[in-house]
Structures are given as C-alpha cells and as structure tokens.
C-alpha cells in the first residue's frame, strides 16, 4: 500500500507549517507517517539534522509510547514532549497514521508552542485523513 501527495497538497501543508510554526520561531518541524516516512520537513536554516534518522526514531518512539499506553489501560498519549537544555522536541499525533514533530529552543514557551501546534494539527487533519485508510495498527 502506498500513498501520494501532489504539489498543491504539499504546498498547502508547507504554508500551514510555515505560518503557524516556522514563522513563530520553531527551529525545525517535520511531518511524518507512522512508518517513519517524511512527508515534509522545514527549518529556519540554522541547523541541519539527520532528518531521516530522526523520523525513524520518532516513529519508533511514538509507537513504543502508544504500546505502553495500551498496557496501562490508556487509549493513547496523543502528545509527547522531551525537554533538553537548549533544544526541546514535541510530538503531536494528527491521526492514526501521521505525526507532527517540532524542535524548538527555550525562547518559545511550551504553552505557546502547544497552541500553535494544535492550530496546525486541526488544519492538517482535513488534508491528511482522506489519504490513508487506517489499516496499519
């Protein structure tokens, strides 16, 4: 099973991520699927990360935490946050198949970031949900 996104769809997605996140000071944002594929990736040009490895680990990490949720009787943890000294990473589930990941510094508050991420997620849902029938998992 595969799925495609065309120029118009990807432009729309990138517009949303740019306006909500990159223009608000997020260092790096990427949209991935639960298989670990990268749908789109944007950054403020400061730092180059190994995005393919990050995506693979992020999908694995999110999958592992979801499996833990099931074991303790939670339906899911729809968002995750890892705090570092200078860099923080935030994961937000968009649907059963997609995940939005942001990397940001301490100049942005977690509350503000969450609000902006929630805005993006709301808009992305409508675009992404029709793409993939939720057969995986």
């Amino acid at each position: 099973m595969s799925y495609t996104l065309d120029q118009r769809q990807l432009d729309r997605i990138e517009d949303i991520l740019k306006a909500d996140l990159v223009d608000n000071g997020v260092r790096c944002v990427f949209l991935i699927d639960m298989a670990g594929n990268i749908i789109t990736h944007m950054d403020n040009g400061e730092k180059q990360h190994d995005i393919y490895s990050l995506a693979a680990l992020a999908a694995g990490n999110f999958g592992a935490v979801s499996a833990m949720a099931k074991i303790i009787g939670e339906n899911e943890f729809s968002l995750l946050f890892h705090k570092g000294k200078k860099e923080n990473i935030h994961f937000n589930k968009i649907s059963s198949e997609f995940l939005l990941i942001t990397i940001f510094g301490n100049e942005i508050s977690l509350g503000f970031l969450r609000m902006k991420v929630a805005d993006s997620v709301e808009q992305l849902k409508g675009l992404l949900e029709p793409l993939v029938p939720g057969t995986d998992g």
Partner: peptide, 12 residues
C-alpha cells in the same frame, strides 16, 4: 506504506 512525493519526485 511507501510515500510518494509528487512535488519533489521522491519515493520513500
């Protein structure tokens, strides 16, 4: 679940 990016012409 391969992802095909028609904009950048990349298949993962």
């Amino acid at each position: 679940m391969a992802f095909i990016n028609l904009k950048n012409k990349v298949i993962q």
